[in-house]
Every structure is written in C-alpha cells, then in structure tokens.
Amino acid sequence: MPTLVSKSLREYRRSLIGWTIGIGAFFTLYLSIYPSISANPDLYGEMALAKYPGAMRDLMGGLNDFTSGAGYLQTMVYQLFGPMLFIVCAMLLANRAIAQPEESGTLELTMTLPIERKRLVAERFVALALGLLALAAVTFALVWLLSSLVDLGVPFDRILAAHLAVYLLALLAGTLTLAVGAAAGRRSVAMAVVGVVFAGGYVVETMGRNVDAISWLRWVSPFHYYLEGRPVFEGFPWGDYLVLLGATAVLAMTAVLAFDRRDVGV
C-alpha cells in the first residue's frame, strides 16, 4: 500500500472505530424496537403521523408506511439519520487530509517529502474512500443481521442498494470537504460548504417535492440521486449512483488540481 495511504488510514483508525461503534449502536437501538412497532402498527403509525405534521412529515420522507419493514428501515436508518451520520463522519475525516494538518502546521513536513503534490492529495483521497468503505461494510453487515433478527422482511439486495447509496453520499461529502480544504486550506470553510450543500440539499429534495418554487433545485441536491430512486423499495437506481460517483470523481480531480497550484500554510 502506498505510504501516505497507509499512514492516513492509521490516522483514521481510532475515529473510524468510534464512528462504527456509534453508528452501529444507533442502528441497533432503532432496529431492535421494530418488533413492538410491527405488533401495533395502527398505534405507532398514527403516533408518527401525529408527531410530524405537514411539512415535517415530508422532511422525514413521508412516513406513509412507517410500520412496514421497508418503510421503517427507510425512515429510521436510510432516510435521514444514517446518511447524516455518515456525512458528518466523512466531513471530519476528510478535513484531516489537508485542511486540518495545514492549519496546525503538520502538513509542512509532509510537503517537503519527495512526494508530488498531486499524489499527496490522491493518496489522501484513496485513504478516505477506503476508510469510509470499511465503516460502510461493517455497518451494512450489522443492519443486514439485525433486519433478519427482527424479521424486517427487506431483501438483502435492497439493503445493499440503500447502504451503497449512503456510502456514495458520504464519499461525495468527504470529497467535497477534501476539495474545498485543498483549495482553501481552511477547515471551517470546508465544513460550511458541505453543510450548505448537504443540509440544504436534503431540505430541497424532501420539501421540494411539494413546493414548486424550489423543485428545480432538486437536480443539484446530492440527495436527489439517492432518495428519488427509493432503493429500499425498488433496488439499485444505477443511473443515479453513477451521477454521485461522477460528481465525486470531478471533485477529487478538482482537489488534486487546486492543491497543486497554491501556496500552502500561508
């Protein structure tokens, strides 16, 4: 493995383990109460609808078949919470690639190694992709195991489709963080941009279905290429996933080129 990839993965190890435990605990908690919800579908279905009126319901993905296995999985894991946890994790990890070491000054010594700048960013990107992949793989195995235990009744490939999308979203968020960090060298700027794109993108995608004024914005929301295809219900929307991957590739390229042409640590 290239030196910087393995070095970055070593740096990520601790927080990756932490995030895996945290996200795993979150999923376990919510999936393990499913049996009591499926036992009283009328009660919990109404409670959910009463708790989230109107627009809030849109924000939670509709909540229409909240008490079915697929609906519950979508609402509690794959609608908002799962992606958001992954995105925040990706953002924090990606900031450790360039912006954070640049701000603290530790990047300077790395820059004076006989490693091309382009390669430096590229290897950091590979480490980010691998680190997130590990997190996604472990949590996927956990969700699949739990969903079998609580009889969620969602096929393996649907869960895989949804989990893959969460990974792709997180990778996109991480790569955007990396690109802004590589261009600006500031953690806060990178986090602000990712916050606007992903939090804003989520609102636009969910609310935009019923608000014509912003519905055109859905096309630029990353969440559009995940939620629109309803992978938990309908399987892999491959075209949408390719859009996410393509955007990631473009951002990764941007990160490499942006970092190659600027002053570092000024």
């Binding site: 070593r10 740096e11 603290s104 000054g105 530790t106 010594l109 004076t112 190694l113 490693i115």
Partner: peptide
Amino acid sequence: YLPGELALEGREKAGDYLDFLARAR
C-alpha cells in the same frame, strides 16, 4: 529540512512517525 516551527501532534509515537518519514523517502 528542519522547519522553523516544527508542528508535531497526535497520539502517534515519535518513533513511528520517523518510520513513516523514512518509508516515504
């Protein structure tokens, strides 16, 4: 190169960091 303000941080052992620099070279 020895930087004027050498920034080193984290939980990594100094010796392990040195190993990394050596490998990168």
